[in-house]
Nucleic acid binder design. Structure first.
Ligand SMILES: [Mn+2]
Ligand SMILES: [Mn+2]
Ligand SMILES: [Zn+2]
Ligand SMILES: [Zn+2]
Lengths: 139, 139
DNA sequence: GTCAATGTTTAGAATAGTTCTAAATTACAT
DNA sequence: ATGTAATTTAGAACTATTCTAAACATTGAC
């Protein structure tokens, strides 16, 4: 159970004002284990904890935290964005059935040599997604 | 320049009726080199070739072709779906600047051993996306 | 060929996730 | 405390996509 101050300092050190909403959302995000959330999920958690925060603020905050390197945004499903509290290098399982993401520990997957990025560009990131499907839809 | 009949047979062999719209879209998709298109792009191509087809049909057709294994759907950007005419195993560059995809030939990347899929599930596919960014946004 | 049955297309409405707007509120340096 | 800049908010707007249900095309039997 981290002290309130931990979150305030974390937000401040990212160059953002530690507002009531940002502190509360940071608590939901960074209190426990690493997680993969959608905006809507986080908003609903906030509501059920009786927090006073708007959906727009949840979106703003998720993007600001991402911009600040506290979160990573992941595109696996074209319908919703996922935000990952684990910003270390790692890859993902995508469980199609329930729309959940799971981490694949780094080292579990190795990437061979890559073609060079064209001149004037550079590789920003490499994302591996292993999509998991229910095995009983294959007859 | 493939004959009309080629497309008709291709569509038929996928278990779909070779309708005027499906034939014309198949021509746009499978006439030349492999491509990565969005629904909107394909629709605009169709319009500029004076084809009579609706956007809903473009979406329907892309999904039916995907279902039938003629296309592969790719999620790199949460705002739009890409459809790939190359259904062989291969991975992608994503050029963030212009929203274009490029193929990474298979063999260029190697994936190490993976954790097992949980019981009752199986691995559907493994997708690697190498995001390329303009190198001048890094000071 | 005709015809019925089934499959397909379509325009436009609807949906859903996300972003925008501009007014109200809050944070914080002085 | 006060003023200024940053933040939040409700709701409207936006955009990609899907749905609806009526019109139309394709197919296979005759
Ligand atoms: Mn975003
Ligand atoms: Mn789709
Ligand atoms: Zn993760
Ligand atoms: Zn491809």
């Amino acid at each position: 159970m981290r002290p309130n101050n931990y979150f305030i300092e974390y937000i401040r050190s990212a160059g953002l004002c530690p507002t009531r909403q940002r502190i509360a959302l940071a608590k939901l995000l960074f209190q426990g284990d690493d997680r993969h959330v959608t905006a809507e999920e986080l908003y609903n958690e906030a509501l059920s904890e009786k927090m006073k925060v708007s959906l727009a603020t949840v979106y703003n905050t998720l993007h600001q935290f991402t911009e600040a390197g506290m979160l990573r945004e992941i595109s696996v499903d074209t319908n919703r964005s996922y935000f990952d509290t684990n910003t270390r290098k790692h890859h993902h399982f995508y469980f199609e059935k329930d729309g959940k993401l799971g981490d694949i520990p780094d080292g579990m997957i190795s990437i061979g040599k890559l073609p060079e990025a064209p001149n004037g560009t550079k590789i920003k990131c490499i994302d591996v997604v292993v999509t998991i499907t229910d095995s009983n839809n294959d007859y």
